[in-house]
Amino acid sequence: MSNVSATLPRKARVPIFVVLVLVGISIAYPILYLAFTAFRTRADYLGNPFGLPSELTLQNFISVWNNYGIGRALLNTVIVVAVGLTVQLLVAGLAGFALARYPVPGARYISGALVSVMLIPSQVLIIPIYLLLSRIGLVGSLPGLILVYVATGLPFATFFLIVTYRSLDTSVLEAARVDGAGFWRTFLSVASPMAIPGLATLLVLQFIAMWNELLFAYILLPNDQLRLITPALAQIGGRFTNDQPFVAVGLILTALPPLLLLSFAAKYVMSGLGASFGR
């Protein structure tokens, strides 16, 4: 990649930097502002919402944790996301590896169909899925939602992994086959270790998608006991709008895991973007 700024005089770089900094502040400021609000008392916030806090307190976190079932919501979310990601990665990995490397009849049509299925918006799916799951008693149960998350994420995950497994060095896989390694051996011990960057990228993208999902989580888990964190936050925000520090606590707790993931795995997230255009 050539360094284009070589054609730019040093003087011209200053205004560009200033504009980028201003845009950067407009992104970071609202988030940092709410992070601060979460540590302020309600009286302090109402006295001067825009100013700097006069004192910082953890009381908001304690109240929200004790009174609004945030701990349980976090636990439910971790269960759903952990089981969902594991199952999805396994199912999509098997399918992606087979479609990329095995003589699956009609492989090309299957990958084509996966891309078109990706375009189905969740608004179209929510009514029939709600009725189907309620008929088999899976509305209001974590396994029902996990199943829906696994299935609706599969087209993208499988497509992504087809591309990943196809880009692996063919000669290594051929060698394993000649040595008599079967499907499972090749898949688990040869191909997947080579595909770790792709698998990690997919894991990060799908984690963010599941963690943030609102519509299915809200409709398919109607009882408070099983609330996930994102719908729980949406409810806190709806009910307690007068208590901004409480809302800010919910916001920070919900936003933190994806933000941490982005800061530690920016490389994977950014490299996965090219493949996720269709989303």
């Binding site: 970071a28 988030i31 943030n212 609102l214 949406a234 809302v247």
Partner: peptide, 19 residues
């Protein structure tokens, strides 16, 4: 940094702007 909003849920962003 510009990509940060994309990892947040629309519920989080909506509530942020509501606040």
């Amino acid at each position: 940094l510009f990509f940060v909003p994309n990892v947040l849920s629309t519920a989080v962003i909506g509530l942020m702007f509501k606040s």
